[in-house]
Design a protein around this nucleic acid. Sequence first.
DNA 1: CGTTCGCTTGAGGCCGTTCAAGCGACGTGG
DNA 2: CCACGTCGCTTGAACGGCCTCAAGCGAACG
Lengths: 222, 222
Amino acid sequence: MFSDLEQRDLDELAAATVVRNLGKGEVLFEEGAAAKGFYLLAEGRIKIYRVNVEGREQTLHLISPGETFAEVALFSGSTYPATAQALAPSRVLFFPRHDLTRMVERNPQLTLNLMAGFARWVRQFNQMLAEHSKSVPSRLAGYLLAEGRRQHSAALADGSCVTLEINKTEIASFLGTISATLSRSFGQLREAGLIEVTDREVKILDLSGLRDVADRESLSNS
Amino acid sequence: MFSDLEQRDLDELAAATVVRNLGKGEVLFEEGAAAKGFYLLAEGRIKIYRVNVEGREQTLHLISPGETFAEVALFSGSTYPATAQALAPSRVLFFPRHDLTRMVERNPQLTLNLMAGFARWVRQFNQMLAEHSKSVPSRLAGYLLAEGRRQHSAALADGSCVTLEINKTEIASFLGTISATLSRSFGQLREAGLIEVTDREVKILDLSGLRDVADRESLSNS
DNA sequence: CGTTCGCTTGAGGCCGTTCAAGCGACGTGG
DNA sequence: CCACGTCGCTTGAACGGCCTCAAGCGAACG
């Protein structure tokens, strides 16, 4: 993202960044708080969530080390649209907005990079909307495949193992459901012979079958 | 959006724009097509939609005259993430991307304007996700209020009328449901004494009640 | 006059939620 | 070391919202 910056700007940026350490469960910023910049996760795990009218949490993003988040702050200008909380002890780098915008004005190429970052964001959001019209088992299958891809550099295969890095209640929130339903969904995938679950380890027994379920609307269809 | 451009750039932009007329039902661009720029709707009505795995349409945006759409093309770079179709005879202005990016490089202020436009987009998307966890009657109430706000410059009041500018099947698609369910939802709002429906005219009988329903999760709760 | 289209309404079924109970793992304090 | 509470997870039963399938109806149109 910063690859096209001149050295002078890089120095300036580095000088402006702030490091912050978070304990497990600590809230980095809350929905509605003034947005003064964006973040890069150096270490740990962050979840971005909103609470809906009924009080249930809907996780929007799960941030892994190396990813930036809250870039929206650069545009929306005013407030964060969601809450960020550490799921594990974490270290984040903070980039103040006014430094960034100053640099943007001087370095148009940076704009294009920012835009590219958006592309990812848009795609992800689009996908979330699409996912939301699927059944819970389908969404779960998609999640497992995505996690597997993220964890292994190599391609997935029958027999690959995926580690659940967050507890199942958190996964449920990410998938827009509750733990009870998620539990049954794991059961359905297991009974279909697609996966094997032991604690926080998921073994993929039938990769292509799992892909089918993830692409399909429901588990039963066609 | 273009307010900060210099005259020279404005001239150049004007020279690059292309006008296109669309008949009712005509498709402007399809999901997956190469994205070469974005559009401004001068006249008519456009819907942006995706078809999910099951083949049902989910409308993402309804574009009214004066609004821009497909700005995403400026970022994602590659392909349109959805399909655009005219709901009525329409006239659109097309802005080629490469002209825009050239201008962005020369005119950093334009970037910030683009970002501001994007902020709107993000907010809308966020709201869509939130809406999706509500009941259909709630979503319908929200839609009616939004349409009312869009149509009347003055504030809404008990007795205000809202005209449904698109047919109910299209509204259903926009709300992520089907016409049968939408029909029942209209019935529920009517029976609750909140609205009165005659053909394509909706009279708001109880504005604050309608707002309550729109903010609540379901019609029955509390 | 027949067809198509948009809308409404009914019956039935599915999926996910709610409420509730039960279980093992873990930590704490007696 | 054991009793007890909490927490995360699972499982059952019941309820409810929305979808599906289907029929019916008026209006527009050829």
